[in-house]
């Protein structure tokens, strides 16, 4: 199937942005976005058109606590959302261009890495890619007979005051089962939970936790979900 044909490219981008492209098709599309700049650009075109629809909604001011939690997570101090002094604008175009260039370079490197992973890694029976909102790969997870291997991508921006925890979501509706903490960089091996052979797994989830992992055995803040693909 040629994803670069204009009509097909637009149809997929539109449904991706709308949200009706789901499950495996959505993940495959995210991977295509990493590989083809044309597909990324088509997606942006649709995002900028369709997301203007959101202006139809009446604004709803979130409670103050939302900003407080954001500033806490980012480690800010004393930045109230109200009563802010006007920003004095500075010249910053050089840094801006440099940062944009760096981001583009990082995206290109990622695309190359992804293609290598797809073509070289043929042995593991199951894999999953945990992706961020903008389809950037954050962790690559491979599961074989005994072990879960997790590689953190360079895209991951580790948080010093939190850990990331991996969870298995079973189809039978039981509470998510912790599989262990994810690496913030490099590679880590986790023991494969015995339940893998006993229940049907519908998703893996990644949560943000206090250092050391979930305090109560349940995910605190679910950040991402992904599904296992059998190769």
């Amino acid at each position: 199937m040629n994803y670069l044909l204009e009509a097909r490219r637009n149809a997929l981008a539109a449904e991706y942005v709308l949200g009706t492209l789901q499950g495996g098709a959505r993940r495959r599309y995210q991977q295509l976005m990493m590989q083809y700049s044309l597909i990324r650009e088509t997606t942006w075109m649709w995002e900028q058109q369709i997301n203007d629809l959101s202006r139809q909604l009446d604004p709803v001011t979130p409670e103050e606590v939302v900003w407080q939690k954001i500033s806490q997570r980012l480690g800010f101090v004393d930045v109230p959302a109200g009563n802010i002094v006007p920003l004095v604008q500075k010249k910053k175009s050089a840094v801006w261009q440099w940062a944009t260039g760096l981001a583009t370079a990082a995206a290109l490197i990622l695309a190359v890495v992804l293609i290598r992973v797809q073509t070289v890694e043929v042995t593991p029976p199951q894999v999953a890619v945990v992706q961020g909102e903008k389809a950037q790969a954050l962790w690559l997870i491979e599961i074989d007979d005994e072990i879960i291997r997790v590689k953190a991508s360079d895209n991951l921006q580790p948080q010093l005051n939190n850990d990331y925890e991996l969870w298995m979501v079973a189809k039978d509706g039981r509470a998510p089962v912790s599989l262990g903490l994810l690496p913030k960089s490099g590679q880590l091996e986790l023991a494969k939970h015995a339940l893998f052979e006993q229940v049907e797994i519908v998703a893996l989830a990644v949560s943000l936790e206090p250092l050391g992992g979930s305090p109560n055995g349940l995910p605190t803040t679910v950040l991402y979900t992904t599904e296992l693909m059998t190769l």
């Binding site: 604004p59 001011t61 979130p62 900003w67 500033s71 800010f76 930045v79 109230p80 802010i84």
Partner: peptide
Amino acid sequence: NQEAFAQLYEATSAQMYAV
């Protein structure tokens, strides 16, 4: 720049929260 970010939040959060 944290102040700029706080102002961006002020300017956009009601629309983002509505969505």
